[in-house]
């Protein structure tokens, strides 16, 4: 998301995370197969962590020598 401003980028990520959280809940409630449900929840959790670690925690800055 290079063209967006910092605030907008954060809000878009937040909306994505909120949608994923609600979908995660609906998926868990409606999918009966245990293995499919477990796999779906694991993939959703990992995707959410990627978004938080990259966009909110700026993990890429660990490899960059830059000021605030």
């Amino acid at each position: 998301m290079p063209a967006m401003g910092a605030f907008q980028k954060g809000y878009v990520v937040a909306i994505v995370l909120a949608v994923m959280t609600i979908l995660e809940y609906l998926f868990a409630v409606h999918v009966d197969d245990l293995q499919v449900r477990f796999l779906g929840l694991a993939i959703t959790a990992l995707a959410k962590v990627y978004f938080i670690a990259y966009y909110f925690m700026h993990i890429y800055r660990c490899w960059r020598e830059e000021a605030h």
Partner: peptide, 18 residues
């Protein structure tokens, strides 16, 4: 702290399908 909850929430609330 939020990241930890991303894993704890499904493990405690959702894994049994609600």
């Amino acid at each position: 702290v939020d990241v930890v909850w991303v894993f704890y929430y499904p493990a405690l609330y959702l894994v049994a399908g609600g």
